[in-house]
Simulated assay, not measured.
Amino acid sequence: MEVPDGLEVISAAAAEAPRRPGVYLFLGEADDILYVGKATDVRQRLRQHAAAKPSDYWLDQKYVLVRRIVWELAADEEAAFWREEELIFALGPAHNAQRRRDGDPATARRSPYLTVIQDQHDRLRFVLTPTLPTAGRGYGCFPHLGKGHGAPLGIACSDGYTALLRLLWAASGEGTQVPATLARSAPDEYAVTVEPALREPLHQFLSGARAKLPTELLDRAANRPAFQQTGLRKDLALARLFYRAGPQRLRERRLRHGRRAGPIDPDTLRALIRAEITAVLDPVG
């Protein structure tokens, strides 16, 4: 039987694809997943692939091996971009630049847990750990939280998490200048005073059950100098984004799949995401 040309497969898929945001997957001979992409317009993006002139070995192999293309639509561009990162994490397609750059997606560095520990000075210490924490309260895993993430979901998680820490610092009344640790994205460790009344709201926020904490922190930081208020208002928006990208997203996934409350390990999270995409990958469906 004649083997179909990969670019012809892509061109045929482009003719059928909708003009909506979403993710698309290139599949190989055995339905192995070669590549995951995202688009604000799936049809237009596939047309661009079909018209490409491969100039290096990697691109040539990606197109030559394509035998089938499927897609999953998204509510908007942000949802499509976030979904792409999740699928790369869960499926590990060999021809994605992110997959090739980061190496094995199963590495613990890419699946951090957040641990909150009360120290001997009654402060809370926030620690990003590669394994399930044995002390304090653990949250996650959040595979897109940590240093070095440059794609939209990773930026939302990592920069938004740091913004949350800055709001906690501002509400604490400690110091006059933002600590240097909080000038970079997703510090591995940070300790700050958190008043007792805020500790349960903090737990609810990190569990994805209640989103109001950043607003409450900004209110408590009202006595900070005026020159800091503009930055803190930006941090409010970023911390809300972290909530949606991290804690809330994980909680919604747990509830959708009937998982109990508490941290989820990376392998389980991958399995849940793979289960969600099964209907798209099923040629019968």
Rank of each mutant, 00 (worst) to 15 (best):
residue 40 T to K: 08
residue 49 H to G: 00
residue 17 A to E: 06
residue 48 Q to M: 07
residue 105 P to I: 07
residue 98 Q to A: 13
residue 100 R to F: 10
residue 102 D to A: 13
residue 67 R to H: 09
residue 67 R to L: 07
residue 18 P to I: 04
residue 16 E to I: 12
residue 47 R to L: 07
residue 122 D to Q: 14
residue 62 K to V: 03
residue 81 F to D: 13
residue 88 I to Q: 03
residue 91 L to A: 02
residue 56 D to V: 04
residue 118 Q to I: 09
residue 35 Y to L: 05
residue 71 W to T: 01
residue 36 V to G: 06
residue 73 L to I: 05
residue 69 I to Q: 02
residue 99 R to F: 12
residue 92 G to A: 13
residue 114 L to S: 04
residue 23 V to D: 00
residue 91 L to C: 02
residue 113 Y to K: 07
residue 47 R to Y: 05
residue 77 E to I: 06
residue 29 E to T: 06
residue 103 G to H: 11
residue 19 R to N: 10
residue 81 F to Y: 14
residue 108 A to H: 10
residue 61 Q to G: 09
residue 66 V to M: 06
residue 33 I to R: 10
residue 74 A to V: 04
residue 75 A to Q: 14
residue 39 A to V: 00
residue 59 L to A: 15
residue 39 A to M: 00
residue 54 P to K: 04
residue 56 D to M: 03
residue 49 H to Q: 02
residue 20 R to C: 08
residue 84 E to C: 05
residue 38 K to R: 14
residue 97 A to F: 12
residue 35 Y to M: 02
residue 78 E to P: 11
residue 90 A to T: 01
residue 19 R to A: 14
residue 51 A to M: 07
residue 109 R to A: 09
residue 109 R to N: 07
residue 35 Y to H: 09
residue 26 F to M: 05
residue 23 V to N: 04
residue 26 F to T: 01
residue 88 I to W: 03
residue 49 H to C: 01
residue 47 R to M: 08
residue 118 Q to T: 15
residue 20 R to M: 08
residue 35 Y to Q: 06
residue 43 R to V: 03
residue 56 D to N: 15
residue 111 S to K: 00
residue 110 R to T: 12
residue 85 E to T: 05
residue 49 H to V: 02
residue 60 D to W: 13
residue 89 F to K: 06
residue 109 R to M: 03
residue 55 S to M: 08
residue 63 Y to F: 15
residue 117 I to E: 15
residue 55 S to D: 13
residue 84 E to R: 06
residue 87 L to W: 02
residue 118 Q to H: 12
residue 76 D to H: 15
residue 65 L to H: 10
residue 103 G to D: 09
residue 94 A to Q: 11
residue 83 R to T: 11
residue 33 I to W: 07
residue 60 D to S: 12
residue 77 E to N: 12
residue 50 A to L: 00
residue 49 H to N: 00
residue 85 E to H: 02
residue 58 W to E: 12
residue 22 G to R: 00
residue 83 R to D: 09
residue 99 R to G: 08
residue 31 D to E: 11
residue 78 E to G: 15
residue 103 G to C: 10
residue 83 R to G: 07
residue 118 Q to A: 11
residue 26 F to A: 02
residue 105 P to W: 11
residue 58 W to A: 10
residue 116 V to L: 08
residue 63 Y to V: 05
residue 59 L to K: 13
residue 115 T to V: 13
residue 42 V to D: 03
residue 96 N to I: 04
residue 104 D to W: 10
residue 107 T to D: 14
residue 101 R to Q: 14
residue 118 Q to P: 11
residue 20 R to G: 04
residue 99 R to P: 05
residue 93 P to S: 06
residue 100 R to L: 12
residue 103 G to F: 14
residue 42 V to H: 01
residue 57 Y to N: 12
residue 121 H to N: 12
residue 89 F to S: 02
residue 123 R to Q: 13
residue 102 D to R: 15
residue 37 G to M: 00
residue 97 A to I: 11
residue 104 D to C: 10
residue 38 K to T: 14
residue 36 V to M: 12
